[in-house]
Design a protein around this nucleic acid. Structure first.
Lengths: 226, 226
DNA sequence: TTATTATGTTACAAAATTGTTACAAACTAA
DNA sequence: TTAGTTTGTAACAATTTTGTAACATAATAA
C-alpha cells in the first residue's frame, strides 16, 4: 500500500480520523477543507485517489468532480464521494458525475478502506499489493510471512508488526514515541528500553549471516530501515 | 469455484453485499457503478460472468447488453440481469436482449448464487466445480466427502465447514473472529477457546500418520492452511 | 583524556497464547 | 426411547512472548 490519497472534506474530525488511519496503512495523505483550494492542491499533490465530500462550503462535490473530469491530466483520477445519509442519493446516481464509488456517512474506517482498495485495484493494481518489499526483504501481510532473499524468517508478533511498520516507510527515521504509537496496541504503555530490546530482537531475526544490517540507529532520534 | 465475476450496479450497498459473499465463495470480483465505465473495465478484467443492473445512471442495462453482444470477444459472456420488482419484467422477457437469466430485487444471496452457478455450469462447467483441492487434500462440496491422497477422511460437520472455509482461501491467515463469522451459523455466539478446540479436532482428522501438518498457527493472529 | 549519555546485549520472571484432555449437554439416527 | 455423535466450555499443561532490570559497550561533549 503505497499510494497517495487526497481528501476534500470540511469536517476536520473526519479528516483527522481518515487521514490518521490511512497513513497507518501506508498511504501518503493530504487534504483541503474546501473545493477551490482543494482543486489547486490536488495538482501539486498528484494523488492516486480522491475522497470527496458532497457538501462543501464553496463548491459542491459534484462541481469539483466535473471540474476534475474536464482536466486532461486528472480525467481518470478515481474518486470516492462521501455523502451524509439520505443526502440526495438519487442525484448522485442520476447524475453521470463520473464518481467511482460513494459511501454514506457515518461509515466505519474499515468499510472505507475496503472500498478504497477495490477502486484502486481497478485503476492501478500495483498500489494495493499486500506484499511489502525492501531490498531483499519481503513481507506478506495476508499470509503473515517474511522472507529474506527466498529464505523464510520466523518473527514473533511484535517483531512482525515492527518490521511491517518500517516497511511502510522505508528509510524514514522514526522516534521511539512514533514507533510506540503505531506498533503497540492503543492505550498500552510500555516504558524505558522496551523498544530498544524489540529492535534488537528484530535485528537478530532478519540479519541472517553474512547479510548486511537493515536497521539503522540514528542516535538521539530513533531507528530506520536502510 | 474459481471464476471471475464483474458487477455493473449503481447501488454500493448491493455491490458490497454481493461482492463480499461471492468472494467468500471463492470468486474474484470487480465492479463498476455505471455502464460506460463498466464496459471499459470489463475488457481489462476478463470476467467469466456479468451481473448487470437494469437501471443505470447513464446507459440502460439493455444498452450495455447489446453493446457486449456486438463485441467479438465478449459475444458469449454470460449475463445475469438484476431488475427491481415489477420493473418492466415483460420487456426483459419479451426482448431478445441476449440475457442468460434475470433476478428481481430484492433477492437473497443464495438465490443469486444458485442462478450464477446454473448459468456458469452451462457456459463453462469447469468453473463451478464443487471440488476444492489443496496439495493432497480434496473436498467434495456436493457429496460432502474429504480425501487425503486417495484415502477418505471422516470429518464431523463443523470440521467439514472449517476445512471448506480454509480451502476457499488457502494460505491466507484468518483471525478467530473471521473464522467465527464465516463458519458458524449467524447470530450464534460461541466464546473462549471453542475455535482452538475445533482446529485441534480438524487437525487430528486430517493429519493421517506421516503426513505433514496442513494447518499453521500464527500466534496472535489466527490460523491458515499451508 | 574523562564524564556523561545513549544504545547494545543478556537474562529472567510474568503474562499471554495455544495445545490438549475431559466431560456434560445437545443433538441425531434408528 | 436408546445408543452413539457432536458441541461448547472448563481446566490444566506446554509453549511463546513480553517487559524490565542490569550490565556492557559505544558515542558524544567537556
Amino acid at each position: 500500500m503505497t499510494g497517495k490519497i487526497f481528501i476534500i472534506e470540511d469536517e476536520p474530525s473526519i479528516i483527522q480520523l481518515v487521514q490518521h488511519n490511512l497513513e497507518k496503512e501506508g498511504f501518503v495523505v493530504s487534504s483541503s477543507l474546501n473545493g477551490n483550494e482543494g482543486l489547486k492542491e490536488l495538482k501539486k499533490f498528484q494523488p492516486n485517489l480522491l475522497l470527496l465530500d458532497w457538501m462543501l462550503p464553496d463548491l459542491s462535490g459534484i462541481d469539483v468532480c466535473k471540474n476534475i473530469r474536464r482536466d486532461n491530466i486528472f480525467r481518470n483520477l478515481p474518486i470516492i464521494m462521501l455523502t451524509a445519509k439520505g443526502e440526495e442519493e438519487d442525484k448522485i446516481k442520476g447524475l453521470d458525475s463520473g464518481v467511482d464509488d460513494y459511501i454514506t456517512k457515518p461509515f466505519s474506517f474499515n468499510e472505507l478502506l475496503s472500498r478504497i482498495k477495490a477502486v484502486l485495484r481497478r485503476s492501478d493494481p500495483k498500489i494495493v499489493s499486500d506484499l511489502l518489499e525492501f531490498e531483499d526483504l519481503k513481507l506478506d501481510r495476508v499470509e503473515k510471512r517474511v522472507f529474506r532473499d527466498k529464505q523464510e524468517l520466523k518473527l514473533g508478533p511484535t517483531e512482525f508488526r515492527l518490521l511491517e511498520f518500517f516497511l511502510l516507510n522505508p528509510k524514514r527515521v522514526f522516534s521511539r514515541d512514533q514507533i510506540l504509537e503505531s506498533v503497540w496496541p492503543n492505550n498500552i504503555n510500555v516504558e524505558g528500553r522496551t523498544i530498544d530490546v524489540h529492535i534488537r530482537r528484530l535485528r537478530q531475526s532478519i540479519n541472517t549471516k553474512d547479510k548486511k544490517e537493515l536497521i539503522r540507529t540514528v542516535r538521539s532520534s530513533g531507528y530506520s530501515l536502510i
